[in-house]
């Protein structure tokens, strides 16, 4: 990660990685052009920000009337809110390739600014969208015969960890972490979703998508984010999916929540949780809520991490190798 000072001007990606990114973007644009999906661009800066307590926005300032210190601008963590405003205004199916920003995230698979492909399909359900995601990823990896599997979040935990994530209490979750041999986690102070995230990232993720594209679907309603919830097998599930390949989380999709009141309630709950943890409370996106109140078409949407897709295509394990310049030499 650290380049000697005399070499600090040099790119972190090699020429082949730059070429792979250019080729990938051309492939994506051809794919969506053929499918009749419109490429759009939305602002990176917004007066409102994501409320999700697990995401921290970077903040900046604009030297213009009406944008004084008490009116900061936030760099988006995903183009979701603005794209939903386009959908509500009647855009039809849309996609976007853009940089997104997440404060504090840096590791072999994380970078504070990274590239997302996000797209929305009005009138589609998550099954149909998952098929399209798989088709695009197979095309991008040039592996047309790559098999695709799908497992529910609940079945994944039941089969791999003998644990029902809808029923397990904190003690069971903690005991499971101990039982599967995770060391140095016993003293963690986590809520239910925190323990589930720990088991997912430490135990399950490395095994997901070993030889095939693997979708995990039907998440606990507490992890719905901006997805609709429905009843399935007598429990409430979020209509949300994640795509994994070779242990890497690649994409996150939803049957999009279109109920403005429900969306406001979730934002408020996020802010309450932020308040309780002493996290900053950014302004709610009232423009999104107004768009939902106007009417968001029934749709499914997904965000796919392009840097990670490139890591898989090139067989590299450090995200810096697919970035022209990592943040340390930006």
């Amino acid at each position: 990660m650290h380049t000697p000072s005399g070499q600090a001007w040099r790119p972190t990606a090699d020429r082949a990685a730059l070429q792979a990114r250019a080729t990938l973007y051309a492939t994506i644009r051809a794919f969506f052009s053929a499918a009749g999906v419109l490429e759009v661009e939305t602002p990176l800066l917004s007066r409102a920000a994501v409320t999700d307590p697990a995401l921290d926005s970077l903040k900046t300032q604009l030297a213009l009337a009406g944008f004084a210190a008490e009116r900061p601008l936030y760099l988006h963590t995903s183009p979701e809110f603005a794209m939903k405003r386009l959908l509500a205004a009647g855009s039809g199916p849309i996609y976007q390739i853009c940089k997104v920003f997440r404060d504090g995230e840096r590791g072999r698979r994380h970078h504070p600014e990274f590239s997302l492909l996000e797209w929305y399909r009005p009138g589609w359900n998550t099954e149909r969208l998952m098929d399209e995601v798989a088709a695009l990823v197979k095309l991008a990896l040039d592996q047309p015969a790559l098999p695709v599997a799908c497992v529910t979040y609940r079945a994944l935990f039941q089969t791999q960890l003998d644990l029902d994530p809808w029923q397990a209490d904190l003690e069971t979750l903690r005991a499971t972490a101990r039982r599967v041999g995770l060391s140095g986690v016993a003293e963690l102070d986590l809520d239910r979703d925190g323990w589930l995230d720990l088991l997912l990232t430490h135990c399950l993720e490395p095994t997901l998508g070993r030889d095939c594209l693997t979708f995990v679907c039907d998440y606990p309603p507490s992890q719905a984010a901006l997805a609709r919830v429905k009843y399935s097998d007598a429990v409430l599930v979020a209509e949300r999916f994640e795509l994994y390949y070779q242990g890497l989380e690649l994409a996150n999709g939803f049957a999009e929540l279109s109920d403005a009141e429900e969306q406001r309630a979730r934002f408020e709950a996020d802010l309450a949780q932020r308040r309780a943890c002493g996290q900053p409370e950014p302004p709610l996106d009232e423009a999104l809520l107004a768009a939902l109140a106007h009417g968001l078409p029934e749709c499914a949407g997904v965000a796919l991490g392009l840097d990670r897709l490139l890591m898989l295509a090139l067989g590299v394990t450090d995200i810096a190798a697919v970035l022209s310049f990592s943040i340390e030499c930006a």
């Binding site: 995401l55 590791g107 698979r109 994380h110 720990l198 430490h202 993720e205 992890q223 989380e249």
Partner: peptide, 11 residues
């Protein structure tokens, strides 16, 4: 090592 699900707790 920084590990974090896209939507969820970072470790």
């Amino acid at each position: 090592e920084f590990v974090k699900p896209g939507k969820g707790q970072a470790f």
